[in-house]
Design a binder for these strands. Sequence first.
DNA 1: CAATTAACGGAACTGGAGTACCGTTATGGG
DNA 2: CCCATAACGGTACTCCAGTTCCGTTAATTG
Lengths: 205, 205
Amino acid sequence: MGVEGTEPGTVRPGGRTARVRAAVLQATGDTLTEQGFAHLDLADIARRAEVGKTTVYRRWGTVTSLVADLLVDMAEQSLPRTETGSLLGDLKANARLVQRTLAAPRQGALFKAVIAAATCEAKTAEALHRFYDIRVKEWAPCVQQAIDRGEVPEGTDPHEVIRAVSAPLYYRLLTTGESLDEAAADRAAEAAATAARAGAYLRGV
Amino acid sequence: MGVEGTEPGTVRPGGRTARVRAAVLQATGDTLTEQGFAHLDLADIARRAEVGKTTVYRRWGTVTSLVADLLVDMAEQSLPRTETGSLLGDLKANARLVQRTLAAPRQGALFKAVIAAATCEAKTAEALHRFYDIRVKEWAPCVQQAIDRGEVPEGTDPHEVIRAVSAPLYYRLLTTGESLDEAAADRAAEAAATAARAGAYLRGV
DNA sequence: CAATTAACGGAACTGGAGTACCGTTATGGG
DNA sequence: CCCATAACGGTACTCCAGTTCCGTTAATTG
């Protein structure tokens, strides 16, 4: 008598199961970048991944659920931040990283697609939130260092500053047709640094 | 001999045709807010709008195309901006307006859905870009007035400042689970005003 | 106020997404 | 190394989104 609440793939996650997951997530990423979120269907994913259609439906069930798992996978691949010694330098490094990612045709399309998927289901949204939470936490220390140096007022929320760097880049990506160049990245970093120094991101005021 | 290139609904746009469009766009908005972009299909829209399924497929054809038309409709309903006499006051009014819109359950879900749809097709994306372009242009004059008063340096891009107010609100809506409160709106306006005064949005540097 | 025909809408059809069933493979524990 | 069974995958089926066809309604023109 097996317990009902066990999800497929959790009891024997090694070997074949892991290979299937890798192939399916790979195919999902490819399809999302090529065709976008709207034309995504599980039967097509199964064909691309050269995996049984039944397997995909059993393990993931829906398109949004599949993207949620892709986001878990993406969250695990974290790239370390660079340190320059100044707040503006660190924020610019962050802004350039985000800008390069979003401007790259493949990566940019993928990010747009996972954001779209996240608007459709709570579970997927949660996975996306966790993804960004990890990225923000990775970079927050550079703001804390600036606070310690006295460059930024005590009580500033580091997370909020990091988010302020990315926000205009994402906003531009989604709501305008203009390209994301390095100038946009630098402007985002400078604006965030200036506002942070002026105490615009004081926590809980 | 009719010219091939005429889209249905353009030759006799009055009466019944207009009623059908209104009913379909209404149903589209309702469905987007209730079920999100993923579960949208034209047959369901036709049922809700109490309109022939054939009509919907003939006039719009695809889900993304339908959302593009919805965005054209949304762009036409413009609300006038308020004027307070100071840059910070105007930006706060704008931020509060955006925040209230996105925080409202119905409107917030709708905006998420149209953004998702816009990531899936060029035509829909263009309609979204035009929508935001109109909104930004509506509010840009308040920045120009601040430039004229000498509050903000000459050469500042007014559009960029207005976008800087909305950006963190949208970023928060899409990438975090946190609620959009008035404090977030005020913070966004203050950060943008501070950065603008410091010359962070100088054009073409 | 006809006449023309754009646009709508019902009915019947089709292809493929999603489901059910069951045999096969190979993982992980003993 | 072997057994129990988790997980995969082929086949056959269902159901409905999307299409085709054609008759009906009503928006425009003179």
